[in-house]
C-alpha cells in the first residue's frame, strides 16, 4: 500500500513537474488551431505558407482586415477571412502571437 502511494506520489510529482503547461481548449483555441493545417502548428509554417508566430499582432490584424476588404491581393485568404468576425480574427491573432 505504502509503495503504491509512493509510486502514485512520484508519478503525480513527475507529471506536475515535467508536463508542459496545458492549453485550454476554448472556442478561440479550436478556431485558431484550424489555421495550423496550412500555417503549421503554432503558426510555424515550414514551406511557402506564411508563418505568423513571429509577426507583430497589430501587423497581422491589419493584414487580415485588408484581405477582408479586398485592399490586399490574395489567392485564398480573401475567401477564408470572410468566415470570421473581426473580433474572432483579432482573438486568433492574439492566440498565435502570444506563443513564443
Amino acid at each position: 500500500m505504502k509503495k503504491r502511494l509512493l509510486t502514485a506520489g512520484v508519478c503525480l510529482a513527475a507529471t506536475l513537474l515535467m508536463a508542459p503547461a496545458a492549453q485550454s481548449a476554448d472556442a478561440i483555441t479550436v478556431a485558431a488551431d484550424a489555421c495550423a493545417g496550412c500555417h503549421g502548428t503554432d503558426g510555424r509554417s515550414l514551406g511557402a505558407m506564411p508563418a505568423f508566430h513571429e509577426k507583430k499582432p497589430a501587423e497581422l490584424k491589419q493584414i487580415l482586415r485588408e484581405y477582408k476588404t479586398g485592399k490586399r491581393e490574395a489567392t485564398i485568404m480573401d475567401r477564408i477571412v470572410k468566415g470570421y468576425s473581426d473580433e474572432q480574427l483579432d482573438a486568433m491573432v492574439d492566440y498565435y502571437t502570444a506563443k513564443k
Binding site: 503549421g40 509554417s45 511557402a48 489567392t75
Partner: peptide
C-alpha cells in the same frame, strides 16, 4: 496566379504534414 497557388499547394502539404 496559378503558379502562386501551385507553390502554396506544396506549402500546404508541408504544413499539414507537420501539423
Amino acid at each position: 496566379f496559378r503558379k502562386k497557388e501551385a507553390d502554396f499547394a506544396s506549402g500546404w502539404y508541408a504544413s499539414i504534414s507537420q501539423d
